[in-house]
Design a protein around this nucleic acid. Structure first.
Lengths: 206, 206
DNA sequence: TTTTATTTGGTACGAGCGTATCATGAAAGC
DNA sequence: GCTTTCATGATACGCTCGTACCAAATAAAA
């Protein structure tokens, strides 16, 4: 079967090629990520890309999976960096990690946006991958907000579900504005933190 | 020179073709709006599209202008529909009009998103058009929030600029989630109105 | 009516795309 | 050692894209 690869590690090769695609997607855009460009970026021949990914869609799906890994890695690292795990640090860490503030996050959000817009025109890709990231994010945040309410950190009259959805949408919108060149990452972070500070100020604003 | 067009009204023809492109952009996506597809959708020959728009970029720029008209028309209609012009109605009307809730707004936001993402990869188009819509929107909303503060409708300690930016980004993010099929327009509207209601509730939430 | 400029149609060209095909070197199994 | 399978390479095919070219109608001007 596939007991031991003969010469090279298949998974490593696939990853090498998939990451080349992500690199292109985050610099020249996903529509520039042709099979030939990916091959050149990965330093291999076109035939090799076809060998490991019989079709382009398979390549895209694999690259999207790799991107998902990097994204969740970054989020958990961001939460960890904020010290003890509390509802507040989870919410801050999760959302600020998704904002394109430094070089790595710009890369990730650019690539992610590319896939997101691709799904607009090719819905099969999203179904094949089942990428319901935002939904899980929202329910996670809603739970954290509820916990924060019980701890008195968030006013008791806020609706956790509606607020969590708004925060995710806000973060997404801010990310788009940064990628679109409307403002820089620091400004976006300021806007997001302002909203979070207002939310986590207990019963009174300010 | 071009005193009187001989047979047909040039501007009308250009509009006919431009709207055909918008129709394609809002259904099959902007990447499906090839010159041939636009010609077929407009019911004219490919040569005619080339005649009125020497290059595809000119066609895109013109269509973007038409889209802008329709967008501002919809916003002012939405404001007018909310009754007397107050800061509150202006803010509600502007933002809810930008949300894909009915068929028309879905069409508009789909087309708008197509152009927005196109600018990601072709920044020249945005520069050529100078489409700094969001910036103007934010300053307009910031001013309205300031007015609402003076009228006591909004808590005096909110930052109008940061809040306006957040509202625009929130609306954009919500629109994306609707277009991405994550929720429907009604749910997005509920989330937005919840935030607006909290903002316009004076000094206390609820 | 003849001329001329404007408006329309049909078609071809060159480039880039995803994909398929043919061919070859190198390791594994008998 | 020979054969079979895996891994890689070079190249070709069919398609679609934006654009360019050639030609024919038709309305305005003379």
């Amino acid at each position: 079967m596939k007991a031991v690869p003969k010469r090279v590690d298949h998974e490593q090769r696939r990853r090498q090629i998939g990451e080349a695609l992500l690199r292109i997607a985050s610099t020249r855009g996903l529509q520039s990520a042709t099979m030939r460009e990916v091959a050149a970026e990965a330093g291999v021949s076109l035939r090799l890309v076809q060998y490991y990914f019989h079709t382009k869609e398979q390549l895209l799906v694999a690259a999207l999976a790799y991107l998902g890994e990097q994204l969740t890695d970054r989020v958990s690292a961001s939460i960890r960096a904020l010290g003890p795990v509390t509802p507040r640090t989870v919410v801050y860490g999760t959302l600020t990690a998704a904002l394109p503030t430094d070089e790595e996050s710009v890369r990730l959000t650019r690539a992610y946006t590319g896939f997101y817009t691709l799904v607009f025109s090719e819905p099969e890709l999203g179904e094949r991958h089942g990428a319901t990231y935002p939904d899980k994010l929202e329910s996670l945040l809603a739970k954290q907000i509820t916990l924060a309410q019980e701890a008195g950190e968030v006013a008791s009259d806020v609706d956790p579900v509606l607020t969590a959805a708004a925060l995710v949408a806000l973060t997404h919108g801010l990310g788009s504005s940064v990628l679109g060149g409307q403002r820089d990452g620091a400004a976006a972070l300021r806007i997001l933190e302002y909203q979070l500070d207002r939310l986590f100020s207990g019963n009174r604003p300010g």
